[in-house]
């Protein structure tokens, strides 16, 4: 589950030590085919720099802009992405799957 070569958590801690505002996005649920498994993570800073992934690149842009808001207000949130979920998100997954991403500010 945590065999990612990139050390996402290490980067999150390092960015915090540098005084940057940091958020962590984690895939918490998937339905159907999805490009990255549950537990995959993306770390984002306040300027939009990112490391890791929560999809094959389809939703990272949307996650980054939400993450910057989370860094601003400190409130964690759950984001739903999928081709069938039209009212909430314009961004879809080309693979036809659905995923749920939890975004939290790193203290």
């Amino acid at each position: 589950m945590s065999a990612d070569h990139e050390d996402i958590l290490g980067a999150a801690a390092e960015w915090r030590r540098d005084g940057r505002g940091v958020a962590l996005a984690t895939v918490v649920t998937t339905w159907g085919s999805s490009p990255r498994p549950v537990g995959s993570q993306l770390v984002v800073d306040e300027a939009g720099a990112m490391l890791g992934s929560v999809s094959g690149g389809c939703i990272e842009g949307a996650v980054v802009s939400e993450a910057i808001e989370v860094i601003g207000d400190g409130k964690p949130r759950v984001l739903d992405f999928g081709v069938t979920n039209e009212q909430a998100w314009e961004v879809g997954l080309a693979c036809g799957g659905k995923i749920q991403v939890f975004v939290e500010k790193v203290a």
């Binding site: 589950m1 945590s2 065999a3 984690t26 918490v28 649920t29 549950v38 537990g39 749920q100 939890f102």
Partner: peptide
């Protein structure tokens, strides 16, 4: 079982992220 997942518990939905030692 080394399997991360979200579960519904008394206090609400909880994500269990398993961090296993490296391969």
């Amino acid at each position: 079982i080394d399997d991360s997942r979200a579960v519904d518990l008394a206090g609400g939905r909880v994500f269990l992220h398993v961090h296993s030692p490296p391969l």
